[in-house]
Deep mutational scan, measured.
Amino acid sequence: KRPMNAFMVWARIHRPALAKANPAANNAEISVQLGLEWNKLSEEQKKPYYDEAQKIKEKHREEFPGW
């Protein structure tokens, strides 16, 4: 399985609240909304998620060399 990128790290945190706020929305609609919200963030706001994604990527590389 591929390691999460910065957007996926961010979305994992924000998806539950968005789903709760929009109970009639299906998963595809929630994903679209998450994408729109992510694109509104500044690079500075995204930086912690890029940092976390890098850590996940490095850990994945250690656990699965050659993947």
Rank of each mutant, 00 (worst) to 15 (best):
K1M: 12
K1D: 12
K1C: 03
R2T: 11
P3Q: 15
P3W: 06
P3I: 08
P3K: 15
M4F: 02
M4Y: 08
M4R: 01
N5I: 05
N5R: 02
N5Q: 02
A6S: 03
A6C: 00
A6M: 00
A6F: 00
A6H: 00
F7Y: 13
M8T: 07
M8D: 03
M8N: 06
M8E: 15
M8Q: 14
M8V: 06
V9Y: 06
W10Y: 15
A11K: 02
A11Y: 05
A11G: 03
R12V: 06
R12C: 04
R12Q: 14
I13H: 08
I13P: 01
I13D: 14
I13V: 10
H14N: 08
H14A: 09
R15M: 07
P16D: 15
P16Q: 09
P16M: 07
A17S: 12
A17G: 07
A17R: 15
L18Q: 05
L18R: 03
L18C: 05
L18E: 02
L18V: 13
A19S: 08
A19M: 14
A19G: 04
A19Y: 06
K20A: 10
K20W: 03
K20I: 15
K20D: 10
K20H: 03
K20Y: 01
A21C: 00
A21P: 02
A21W: 02
A21V: 06
A21F: 04
A21G: 04
A21E: 13
A21Q: 12
N22I: 05
N22W: 06
N22F: 09
P23H: 03
A24R: 04
A25T: 03
A25W: 15
A25N: 05
A25C: 11
A25F: 09
N26L: 06
N27C: 13
N27M: 07
N27H: 07
N27D: 14
N27R: 12
N27E: 14
N27I: 07
A28Q: 12
A28P: 03
A28K: 13
E29F: 03
I30E: 03
I30R: 01
I30M: 07
I30P: 03
S31N: 02
S31M: 08
S31D: 13
S31H: 11
V32R: 15
V32W: 08
V32T: 14
Q33I: 15
Q33N: 12
Q33D: 04
Q33Y: 08
Q33G: 03
L34I: 03
L34M: 06
L34W: 01
L34D: 00
G35S: 14
G35H: 10
L36D: 11
L36M: 12
L36H: 09
E37H: 04
E37Y: 04
E37W: 04
W38S: 00
W38Q: 01
W38P: 01
N39H: 07
K40S: 11
K40W: 00
K40Y: 02
K40D: 03
K40E: 06
K40H: 04
K40F: 03
L41W: 01
L41A: 00
L41R: 00
L41M: 10
L41H: 00
S42N: 06
S42E: 03
S42R: 02
S42W: 01
S42K: 05
S42V: 00
S42C: 03
E43M: 08
E43N: 07
E43L: 05
E44S: 09
Q45S: 07
Q45H: 03
Q45N: 11
Q45F: 03
Q45R: 07
Q45E: 10
K46D: 00
K46A: 02
K46N: 00
K46H: 01
K46T: 02
K47P: 00
K47R: 13
K47D: 01
K47V: 08
Y49I: 01
Y49C: 00
Y49M: 00
Y49S: 00
Y49H: 02
Y49L: 01
Y50H: 10
Y50A: 12
Y50T: 06
D51W: 03
D51M: 10
D51Q: 10
E52T: 06
E52W: 06
E52G: 04
E52I: 05
E52K: 03
A53V: 03
A53D: 08
A53P: 02
A53Y: 08
A53L: 06
A53S: 06
Q54R: 12
Q54E: 09
Q54H: 10
Q54G: 12
K55S: 10
K55Q: 11
K55G: 09
K55T: 13
K55H: 07
K55R: 14
I56M: 14
I56T: 07
I56S: 10
I56D: 02
K57R: 13
K57G: 14
K57D: 11
E58Q: 09
E58W: 07
E58Y: 04
E58P: 08
E58N: 06
K59S: 12
K59M: 10
K59W: 09
H60G: 14
H60S: 12
H60T: 13
R61C: 10
E63G: 10
E63Q: 06
E63N: 15
E63F: 11
F64Q: 06
F64A: 15
F64T: 15
F64L: 15
F64I: 09
F64R: 12
F64Y: 14
P65M: 05
P65F: 09
G66Q: 06
G66E: 14
G66C: 12
G66W: 04
G66V: 11
W67S: 13
